[in-house]
Nucleic acid binder design. Sequence first.
DNA 1: GGCTTATGCGCAG
DNA 2: TGCGCCTAAGCCA
Length: 256
Amino acid sequence: MPEGHTIHRLAADHKCRFGGRAVAASSLQGRFAAGAASIDGHVLVDVSAYGKHLFYSFTEAQIVHVHLGLYGTFASGRQPAPQPRGALRLRLATRTDWADLRGATACELLNRAERAAILARLGPDPLRRRADAELAWARLSVSRRPIGALLMDQSVLAGVGNVFRAETLFRRGIGPHRPGRELAHAQWDALWVELRSLLRAGVRAGRIVTTRREHGPEPYYVYRRAGQPCRICASAVRSEPMAGRTLYWCPSCQPG
DNA sequence: GGCTTATGCGCAG
DNA sequence: TGCGCCTAAGCCA
């Protein structure tokens, strides 16, 4: 399940399995049958991840764009692949490897201009090497919206989802309701460093763990812990909807 | 087996 | 702001 770390991990995995090779593409679902047929047998030149978007480049005019959304999953492995069944959106396969996509919000064929249009509306992705934190700051620092909503806005910052929003704000002791414009530049810098390091750790581990060792074996401080005691101060963790998703925070460790 | 929930997002209004 | 997407996992009976 997908925040940016999952997407970057998939890109690396798929690049390793299929990059530079002619790939058989098929689909059991009408929705992408034509797209799969048109790339079938072509060489996969590159796989890249931006925020929560995946791009599989075959030719300049044939780039498969995948967005997992809330439900999408990729499974992969070494041949023999399992019998294709059900709503299989896309299978990529070589003689040695396979990958199956199901349930994605987006799986479509784009050209370069269409990919550029998607990238143009994304903010910096903390997992990308040359990501510019100042671009996000320029948006955040003039906004009256709460920081908890801004972190989830993919045009401000790409790749952050509900778990990283809750956990990074907790780790920096920032109240999620604080308007972006009331954040100090130094606080934003610290938040960016935190996001990048937690996302990178997520890519390495293949799952999100934000707790420090001395705070126990559980992976999260506040995410999905409404009503339970804060691991630091024992106050009850609170929750409420913000930006369409459930926000979790500790009212005592995260003032404001 | 059914029901609920979910790490996301585009769209209508 | 609320809905729909249409999958998987966790929980309950």
